[in-house]
């Protein structure tokens, strides 16, 4: 066990965990940040996507000890009022069915659009194909990323 300091959503957290614990389970079991989801545990589905220093990463395979001083953003911290352009697009286009994959989809899309604010359709599909949606909401995910892109300056 080790006492670790983590920077998450612009707040400091301290927690006592084994160093090999994936960030996902620290967020969920230790810190009560359950917006980040568990889907596969082997970096295949993207449900656990968070930002580490602005990069989309899969928290299910990221040992918490590797986070170091890095700044973590989870779905809870993506925006203060849930009004990030990507979140707004997700609501307006009514993307979710069961909703379970959507936090990961949104985090993937938000990191992507930050780097590439004017993506082509092919780039959107390429990036978002890393995230699974078992309900098959892919058409609207694609539409929502496009819509968010058109609204981000």
């Amino acid at each position: 066990m080790a006492l670790l300091k983590l920077q998450i959503n612009n707040r400091s957290y301290e927690t006592d965990v084994e160093e090999d614990t994936p960030l996902l389970w620290v967020l969920r079991d230790n810190l009560g940040l359950v917006g980040t989801k568990f889907g596969c545990g082997i970096a295949q589905c993207g449900a656990c996507t968070v930002h580490l220093d602005g990069e989309a990463v899969r928290s299910c395979t990221l040992p918490v000890s590797a986070v170091g001083k890095g700044k973590v953003t989870t779905i809870e911290g993506l925006s203060e009022k849930g009004d990030h352009p990507v979140q707004k697009a997700w609501d307006e286009i009514d993307v979710a069915q069961c909703g379970y994959c959507q936090a990961g989809q949104i985090m993937t899309a938000a990191a992507f659009l930050k780097k590439n604010p004017k993506p082509t359709d092919a780039q959107i599909v390429e990036t978002m194909s890393g995230n699974l949606c078992r309900c098959g909401t892919y058409h609207r995910i694609r539409e929502a990323v496009k819509s968010a892109a058109s609204k981000t300056k």
Binding site: G35, I75, L78, G82, W90, D91, D94, G99, A103
Partner: peptide, 14 residues
């Protein structure tokens, strides 16, 4: 729209 949208997109425990 889905009545749970807001909770889903902000990662509320659901």
């Amino acid at each position: 729209r889905n009545v749970d949208n807001k909770n889903i997109i902000t990662g509320k425990p659901l």
